[in-house]
């Protein structure tokens, strides 16, 4: 309704003569931007502001009263061993899975693109995990990784190797989750890189051939990798955001255990807010999470933007 009336006003003004055409255009412009603006305000800015407000209180989910506690939640966080473990684990998870997913995704995309047969099959096979619900896939992984009857350990046993308890060993649990995370996101990185590879003009490879850069490594460094710059930036941002959001596998497979060995930021947030019902503290963790994601996005966009756009 509001949009309609504003647009109408704009159009009327343009046709009429009370205000100048520039003013009429401005009114119409605001009118057209209004729906998106309102959605952003109600769905993003107001909730974020709400989180900020809750984070400085001791509100517990369902409680009728709350009191202002200032920065107490944040101070408590600094001393909270679980939060620190979650923070460290999440950063480590991101630091390993992002480069691994990006590079493996690129490698698979290059292999698929260089071959001629079964391209569609390989694409689909690698993309399937992206399509699957991770919570459901986590259950499948749980079965695979079962210490005694799981397929992985049976194979390990057949090969005469140790049969580790993948999800209950505090040294192995995080790497195991990383592998599952890489497996899940690999297909997405691959598809994005495939699209990027398709966008490289053939002329450039031919020029490289004539110029003498015709070995696979020279082609890669002269044409492919530089031309994939924009896609790489996009892929690494997406992968970093998805890695920071790691939750499903933790929730289903480990609940953050053993101890805090697989505790991650989003899982801590969930447990504090919805299991311990310490909503105020949970909101403070959320703010930390939000800050990391926003800063990361800004930094990556800024730094990489300068280096990857050529025109």
């Amino acid at each position: 309704m509001r949009l309609a009336s504003l647009s109408m006003a704009g159009l009327d003004l343009r046709a009429g003569s009370v205000l100048g055409p520039a003013r009429a255009e401005a009114v119409a412009g605001y009118g057209l931007a209004a729906p998106a603006f309102l959605l952003i305000v109600f769905l993003i800015f107001l909730p974020a502001f709400g989180v900020f407000v809750i984070a400085v209180t001791d509100w517990q989910f369902g409680a009728r009263s709350l009191s202002f506690v200032g920065a107490d939640n944040f101070v408590e966080m600094m001393d909270d061993a679980t939060f620190r473990a979650a923070m460290f684990n999440t950063l480590l998870y991101v630091a390993v899975t992002v480069p691994a997913t990006t590079m493996l995704g690129l490698g698979i995309a290059l292999l698929i693109e260089s071959g001629r047969s079964f391209r569609a099959f390989y694409r689909a096979a690698h993309f399937l995990p992206v399509m699957a619900t991770l919570a459901a896939m986590a259950i499948a992984w749980e079965a695979l990784l079962h210490p005694t009857i799981g397929l992985v350990n049976q194979l390990m046993g057949d090969l005469g190797l140790v049969r580790p308890n993948w999800l209950r060993d505090s040294a192995l649990v995080l790497p195991t989750l990383m592998v599952i995370g890489i497996w899940q996101n690999l297909g997405l990185a691959m598809v994005l890189f495939l699209a990027g590879l398709k966008g490289i003009p053939r002329d450039l490879y031919e020029a490289a051939d004539v110029d003498g850069a015709d070995g696979w490594l020279d082609r890669l460094t002269t044409v492919t990798l530089p031309m994939l710059g924009p896609v790489s930036m996009f892929v690494s941002i997406i992968m970093a955001l998805r890695a920071f959001e790691v939750f499903d596998t933790v929730r289903v497979l480990t609940q953050g255990g053993p101890g805090d060995a697989s505790e991650t930021l989003l899982h801590t947030l969930y447990v504090e807010s919805f299991e311990f019902l310490r909503t105020g503290y949970g909101a403070a963790v959320t703010l930390v999470f939000l800050t990391i994601v926003v800063v990361l996005t800004l930094v990556q966009a800024r730094v990489l933007d300068k280096r990857v756009h050529y025109t």
Partner: peptide
């Protein structure tokens, strides 16, 4: 080349 095929980076 017709497109010049210069390396943009």
């Amino acid at each position: 080349f017709q497109s010049y095929a210069l390396y943009p980076h």
